[in-house]
Design a binder for these strands. Structure first.
Lengths: 311, 311
DNA sequence: TTGAAAGCGCTACCAA
DNA sequence: TTGGTAGCGCTTTCAA
């Protein structure tokens, strides 16, 4: 490995001159530049990115914490983030958390150690209070509605979309709804439950909710528990499609199945869906991460009515 | 920002002792350790990851070059890579290339500058000869079959799967096949064409091939051009589903539509599909990237027969 | 059990 | 137009 000081010794110029010649910052006489660059070429010299980072005090890395990338929520955010990071000079580092508090904490610690310039949490397991102290080390962006106003966030305001969906279900004579959600305690779960209770005027019971639903296989696996409900409200179109498949296979009359994210699977089956605009969310998340301002932005969900013609 | 030398001055111990106390490498007396750690705590000290990387000469970053993440090929590889990177101490940096030679070259240059310890190309636009010289800077892994045996690669041997698919189409009395592919010149395109020509015993004409197909929308958009063919061979189940949707909407009798990747969309429509095992490919790619050995591994595709019952 | 000192490789200010 | 020098912050060897 040739280093800058090797070049300095070999060409006879000082390290500063060599540095200027190589980086192009500051003045160097044409002859000097020529000699230095020639020498650099012949030795296959390349500046060391890590050393540059150290000298500059930063590495332009942005950490993106995702539990996994199986759910469209995370895939779409990732897609949005990458799209905006493109050509920005920032690198996106994927940090899988598996919803594990300790891992999240580990990443926060790495953040503190300057491993990342900014951190985007697509999902948070640990409490906001534990995150707040890390804000002094750089921008932290959450992807759900925070409790505090003192932390950047971009999130989808899902209340309206969900209420529209439940309202529509009521017009379809639906009396009972089963839910397929990812986790028992999560922002998604509470928003869903709240919207349902508001629209239907009744409490959600434990029997109505099944958790552990992330992919279509989960929908298929859990579909059995959705028998007897007039409608199923699933955490994504793919999960909804899994449910659909199960009922279809068993030749059992299907409930109305509502999905989310306006995915291909839902469109193929003409399932009604809630579009939470997560792609856009990802784009904004990146913007927030590289801006120094603390800001909270919300996006509205849309409900898309569709009728399952294959029912 | 407190630094190690701050701690050294404040505690009165040398930088080396402080370093040992903080890192836990090497001996430090209990009292010294106590004092140093206390002082570190009270000053909110954290080691600087970048400086550590410099001193160690590496950063444990693995660059994953992807054109985009819209196609299941890349999504699945990414998923496999992340799965294996989990808890490995390596960080996955996503490098979007948009199939752009210059971007690929830019990433190779960053690799040379030690920005990454290893590089995985999920897709390559530039020639192998241009990549080869960079191998001296660390492991480079390709995700398709390379020309040279002197470069690590993990790829799916798709010939057999494709030939089975075309063979099956023949048994279905298919005479003409239309293709929906991503790019005109690509490994995928040539393998597909070769398998078709072998099985059907005739040359593929330009009219048979449509390129620019990546997502289901593309399938839908390009479906018009697939009229008149007995069968359509698409680059993924999602694209196949897009085609299906178009025909379904227009109420035009559907050709046999073959997809790839064994995705939910194909399963919902009971479309036959070729499974190229890209998740597994991603896992292996990570393994190769962190191993120092040069190796080429191949995986076999499977063809999954299904009949479109909604036809 | 501790510390001095020499790196790691580059940047940037300031003086000449 | 160039160079000296002082960082950036940590690791590691070797001697004491």
């Amino acid at each position: 490995m040739t280093s800058l000081s090797d070049l300095s010794k070999l060409t006879g110029y000082s390290k500063s001159t060599v540095s200027r010649a190589i980086s192009g910052h500051g003045y160097v006489s044409p002859e000097a530049k020529q000699k230095i660059l020639d020498c650099a070429d012949s030795l296959d010299y390349a500046t060391n990115a890590i050393a540059q980072d150290l000298a500059k005090g930063t590495n332009h890395n942005i950490g993106l914490i995702v539990p996994h990338i199986k759910h469209p929520f995370f895939k779409q955010i990732l897609e949005g983030v990458l799209e905006k990071s493109f050509d920005s000079g920032y690198k996106i580092v994927i940090l899988p958390s598996d919803y594990d508090e300790n891992l999240e904490l580990k990443y926060l610690e790495q953040f503190r150690k300057k491993a990342f310039e900014a951190l985007i949490f697509t999902s948070v397991q640990i409490s906001e209070e534990k995150i707040r102290p890390y804000q002094k080390y750089g921008p932290i962006v959450l992807c759900h509605k925070p409790q505090s106003s003192q932390i950047s966030a971009i999130y989808t305001q899902r209340e309206m979309g969900y209420e529209k969906a439940f309202g529509w279900l009521k017009t379809q004579n639906v009396k009972t709804v089963g839910f397929l959600l990812a986790r028992e305690k999560s922002p998604t779960t509470s928003v869903t439950v709240r919207a349902y209770e508001k629209v239907f005027g009744q409490k959600v019971t434990d029997q109505q909710i099944m958790t552990g639903a992330v992919s279509d296989e989960d929908g298929y696996r859990l579909a059995d528990n959705m028998r007897g409900f007039d409608a199923v409200f699933a955490n994504s179109d793919n999960i909804a499609a899994g449910v659909w498949q199960w009922f279809d296979e068993k030749k059992i009359p299907k409930p109305i199945i509502v999905g989310q994210e306006k995915l291909l699977s839902g469109s193929l089956l003409d399932l009604p869906t809630v579009d939470n605009h997560y792609l856009q969310l990802g784009r904004e998340a990146f913007r927030l991460a590289i801006s120094k301002e603390m800001k909270q932005i919300s996006i509205e969900s849309d409900f898309i009515v569709r009728a399952d013609r294959n029912k």
